[in-house]
Write a protein that binds this DNA or RNA. Structure first.
Lengths: 153, 153
DNA sequence: CTATATTAGGATAAAAGAGTCCAATAAATC
DNA sequence: GATTTATTGGACTCTTTTATCCTAATATAG
């Protein structure tokens, strides 16, 4: 798997937040219901994203989670780095430690190219971009429903 | 991680075999020593590749493992498919089941492009190609040594 | 000040991936 | 045919990831 499950959940949750009115705090419980992700597990993932400054949290009634900056300023890469780290961007395709231009494996060059394609894709895609696409075409963020089911309260 | 550890070991082992005289059976013990992979673990992985018809095995003295067809006819993709399955080529980047053109997630199109780049790289690279590069430039297939250390008996 | 809503964080459990061990089978040689 | 060299395949252990549960801590509203 390219991304860990935690990372995937983090992406879905961030997209959900980016789809809401800017500044509004959304309770984790509501998010976990809508996105069909275990509440406790999602909580831990959001904690990581909060710690990294991508999200902001607020306790107590009317509290919850929201983006810490506008969705068009959040790249998918930000979330991937926050949760999975830079492994994806540094790791050797043949698993050799310290593989790089200085001391490469036979696959290094080709893999570096491919990796750059992945990196570029994650860097050039913002939350807002995907949310707009998702809303316009009513695409999925959960197993079942379209984008719209995220909005009936 | 893009590829499982089993898959990475399978690739390294296949490259090692492709670097040997065509037709020669190499004992797993020797491979595991040279490649610094656990003998028992490597055994299991080679069993998979043998079952898939990529490698061929022979029991008893002078037995071992060899490629079942010339190295230039083995794509990296063959090995990846045999060990990790087609997950990498089919799985949704957001982890949604059944994500495809018919019922996509917001990231589907972009991810499909990136995935094609990965697929292309794995399909357009053969064992022989990497072995030749590895020999010519004495690159690594293990943590420590260069390609050449694979050949002192 | 008290009750309630909500996140924070530690402890634990379940599942999957990675790695080890051992007995069984097959082929070769003497 | 007995012995040795190897692969085969099942059972088991260890580690990491994924998931659950419980107890704080914090903010709001009455």
């Amino acid at each position: 798997m390219l991304l860990s499950k935690s990372c995937v959940y983090g992406l879905r949750a961030s997209l959900y937040l980016a789809s809401k009115k800017e500044g509004e705090f959304i309770p984790i419980k509501k998010m976990s219901d809508k996105l069909e992700i275990s509440f406790h597990f999602l909580t831990k993932i959001l904690q990581q994203l909060t710690a990294e400054g991508i999200l902001e949290s607020f306790k107590g009634p009317n509290g919850g989670i929201r983006l810490n900056r506008p969705g068009h300023n959040v790249q998918l890469m930000d979330i991937v780095l926050a949760i999975d780290g830079e492994q994806l961007l540094t790791e050797c395709a043949l698993g050799l430690p310290g593989c790089g231009i200085k001391n490469p494996c036979p696959l290094h060059e080709k893999w570096a190219e491919t990796r750059d394609a992945i990196k570029g894709m994650l860097e050039n895609t913002t939350l807002t971009e995907l949310v707009e696409k998702g809303k316009a075409e009513n695409l999925r963020l959960t197993t079942d429903g379209g984008f719209d089911i995220l909005f009936d309260d």
